[in-house]
């Protein structure tokens, strides 16, 4: 039954959603709205499951004094700290003269935002290093990739250090590469992926694909 019930549910839901997609009848649309609402609720519940799993793994590592345990402890402190502050502010237990969610906003603005921005900004350094170490013209394909990459990079930015014609030339080359070469390749990939998704979807709806059950 551990296998049959999930497969039956998947098949039924898949068929109902497919039916609703092609049929404008009131019943099919009502079923569709209901199932989509359930999916949305499952997503929200998945957040809770995710938090539960994160707490379980982190506490295990903290108690085992894993080398990363101080980071896990910090993670738990931030997780429950931010959650508690949010709940206390929503229920008016703590208040600030600076507004309704002043403490939450402070953490978001002063800690979360700078940390996440910094992490993303570090990419500039790693890309520069990777460009030096990994981009080698070992084959015709790699050489084409490198050349196209360099041309797109030059066409993407203003070039005030060069005559305007040079900037315009690189912008035109970049436009051509993106609008024709890239778009043609992307379209082929999108069509291929769409057909693959359709085939996988059909296999799931027909109960042939069971990898989501870890089989």
């Amino acid at each position: 039954m551990k296998r049959e019930i999930p497969i039956a549910l998947t098949v039924i839901c898949g068929l109902l959603i497919t039916w609703a997609f092609f049929s404008p009848s009131e019943l099919s649309q009502a079923v569709n709205v209901e199932l989509t609402a359930w999916a949305s609720i499952f997503f929200a519940v998945a957040f809770l499951l995710g938090i539960g799993n994160l707490v379980r793994i982190s506490l295990k590592q903290i108690s085992a004094r894993h080398p990363d345990w101080p980071y896990k402890a910090l993670l738990m402190l931030m997780l429950f700290g931010y959650l508690s502050i949010g709940l206390l502010e929503i229920h008016g237990v703590i208040e600030s003269e600076y507004g309704d969610k002043a403490y939450q906003d402070w953490i978001y603005e002063r800690i979360f935002k700078p940390l996440q921005s910094t992490m993303f900004a570090l990419l500039a350094f790693y890309i520069a290093s990777a460009a030096f170490r990994a981009f080698r013209a070992r084959s015709m394909e790699a050489t084409l990739l490198l050349t196209a990459g360099a041309l797109v990079m030059l066409g993407q930015v203003p070039l005030p250090i060069a005559p305007p014609e040079v900037g315009a030339f690189f912008a035109r080359v970049q436009g051509f590469l993106m609008a024709y070469v890239n778009a043609a390749g992307q379209s082929a990939i999108i069509m291929g992926a769409a057909l693959g998704t359709l085939a996988t979807g059909l296999r799931i709806v027909l109960g042939l694909e069971r990898s989501y059950l870890s089989e």
Partner: peptide
């Protein structure tokens, strides 16, 4: 971008 292109050329 110019630095990255220069690094690619130098690396090669």
């Amino acid at each position: 971008h110019l630095l990255i292109i220069a690094l690619i050329v130098l690396g090669n």
